[in-house]
Structure formats: C-alpha cells, structure tokens
Amino acid sequence: MSALSTLNPAVGRPSVDDWPFRTRVLCTLGAVAVLHLVALGLWGLGSLGGSVPLAIGLVITCYLTGVKHSYDWDHIAAIDNSTRRFVGQGKRPASVGLAFSMGHSSVVILAGILVVLGATFVSSFISEGTAANTTLGIIGGTVSGVFLLLIGLYNAGACAHSWRLRRRVRDGYAVGEEDLHAQGLVSRVMAKPLARVQRPRNIFTLGFLFGLGFDTASTISLLVLTVSASVAGVSGWTLLSLPFFFAAGMCLCDSLNGLAVLRMYRSAWRDPARKLGFNTAITGLSAAAALFISVITLGGVLNTAFGLSDPVTSWLANVDLGDAGLLLIAALLVVWGGFALVRKARRA
C-alpha cells in the first residue's frame, strides 16, 4: 500500500513531489542554471556580430531588472504564503518560488520573442491606456488580488490557531506536530477555494496570471522595442536574449526566496511547543502582508474597471509596492533572527 501511494495514478510512475527533498532542490537549482545557460547562449550568438560592450550593458540592465522585480511585494507574499500553506499541510515543497517565477517569466519571454519577431500587435498589450492593456491588467490584478486575499485569510486562521495553542501551552497543554496544522472555521472555509492549489507546480499558472498585468513584460518589452528601434548594429540574437536574462535573474531570486521561507517555516515544526511564538509571529506577518496587498490590488482593479474617481480607490490604484518586498523580507529575517537569538540565549 505504501509503495502504491507514491505512484502517480495517471501514469503509474513516482510523482515528482515524491522525490527526495535534496533531489527536488537540485532540480530546482538546475532549472535556474539551464535558464541562465539559454540566456548566455543567445547572447553569445549575438556577440559574434559585434557590439559586445553595448550588448553587455543591455544584458546587465535586464538581469538586474529581473532581480529587482523578484523583490516586489506581490512576489514575496505569494511565494511566502503559498509555502506556509504547503508546510501547514505537512508537505515539504522545494519549487514554489521557481514555479511562480517561471509562470511570471513566461509572459515576459513570450512578449519579448514576439517583439523581436516584429509582432507589432504586442504594442497594444504593453501600451498603457489601450483596451488590451487595461483588460489584461484587470485580469491579472483580479487573479493576484483574489488569490492573496484567500491565502491571506487561510494563513490568518492558522495564525489565530497558533496563538490559541500558545495560550494553552502556558496552561500545561502538550503540543504535538499535528496541532500546528491549520484548523478552525476560517481555515476550513478558505481551504475549499484553494483546493486546486495542491502542488508547487500549480503555482505556475498563478504566476502566469499574475504576469498578465504586463508590469514585468512592459519593462523588458519596452526596452527591447527601444533598442531595436534606436540602436543600430545590435543583433536579433542579443535582443532575444534580453527577456531570458530578465527571467533568469527573477527565477534565481524567487527560487532562493522560496527555499529560504521553507526552511523558516520548517524550523517551527521541529519543536512545536517551544516555537509556537515564532510560528504565530511569522505566519501573522505573512498573512497581514498578503491581505494588505490584496486590498491595494483589488482596489486598483475596481478603480480601473469601473472608472471610479473616489479618493480611496484612486489612491489604491496609484500605490507602488515595487520596493516594499525588501521591507517584508527584512521583517521576516528580523523575526527569524530574533527568535534564534532568544533560543541561543536560553540554551546558554
């Protein structure tokens, strides 16, 4: 029975999610390495035609732009909260960050390829104010806002459950690993809408839909359009490599972020009784971030979709959370480091 339980019923082979954790981590990092090699290969083909200094500058710009975008608050919140939910279900996902980033990157890569191939209709998708751009922005914003709202509420329920357990521990209640799994009305209700998100690979679709707002694709596509229109001598191969460099930088940082938060949450499961405070704080912080971003995102969607002019949704539509992800990462590290110092002090 145990052997059959590890088989994928659709194909009769072991599922990727049943591979050893170290193997899954190596596969995740290997996929990121392959993406870097593809980008370098395309750039190498383009460099054969000259303009190497200019090409290097473009490559570095695109790569760093991808790295920067990986620290947008919606990326951090989606990866962090998804990982928290998987860990709460007793799973040990290794590729949440990669799956989300690859889905997001596929929009960038597809747009970049179409631009290089001369598909002029792409400009209607990336030009702000056009009907196509507005429609895709509404779709992407709605999906990201609703998902962050649902998973934020789910993790908020888990945070409340951990807080109640912490109070019971003070009264002498013995806490086991099973007690940390999300329970309560909120978690049960939110689990149903999130039922389709059962594996890290399901996050790929979410990442793709998140990217339909063309916030990332516009960055790279407009750069490619500018280069292809104004700079003579830059080969098509070099232009084609730019979206891949953007995606490589974003996937690397998102993958590392996913593995880092996985370790953070797994550490709360090794000693449930002593780490309930940490589990409560880190889960509450992540849930609050997801709910905060969902309100801003959905407010902006409502403002755009219905042409509202009220001060609240107008303000929400103009909020830029591009650099706020770094604040969230810093807050998570402060909580993690603080509890580590307290634990070390108690052992001394």
Rank of each mutant, 00 (worst) to 15 (best):
A3C: 11
S5A: 08
T6H: 15
T6I: 15
L7Q: 03
P20R: 01
L26I: 14
L29P: 07
V34C: 11
G44S: 11
L45T: 10
G50R: 12
G50S: 00
S51D: 10
L54N: 10
A55T: 15
G66A: 08
S70A: 12
Y71F: 14
I76H: 02
N81Q: 08
R84E: 02
V87W: 08
G88H: 07
G90P: 12
P93K: 07
V96C: 01
M102C: 15
I109F: 00
A111P: 04
V116K: 00
V116N: 03
F125D: 01
F125Q: 00
I126P: 01
S127F: 00
A132T: 06
A132V: 12
T142A: 06
S144T: 15
F147K: 03
L149Q: 02
L149A: 02
H161F: 07
R164K: 14
V186E: 08
V186H: 14
K192S: 14
L194P: 13
A195C: 05
P200T: 05
L206S: 05
G207P: 12
L209G: 03
T216Y: 04
T216L: 14
S221V: 05
L223K: 02
T226C: 07
V231K: 08
S235L: 13
T238E: 04
T238K: 12
L240D: 03
P243S: 06
A248C: 03
G249H: 10
L256C: 14
N257A: 15
R263F: 14
M264I: 11
Y265L: 14
A268M: 10
A268Y: 05
K275H: 11
S286D: 09
T297M: 14
A305P: 05
S314P: 01
W315C: 06
L316Q: 10
A317W: 07
N318M: 11
L321M: 13
L327H: 01
L327P: 03
L332M: 12
L332N: 09
V334S: 02
A340H: 03
K344Y: 05
R347F: 09
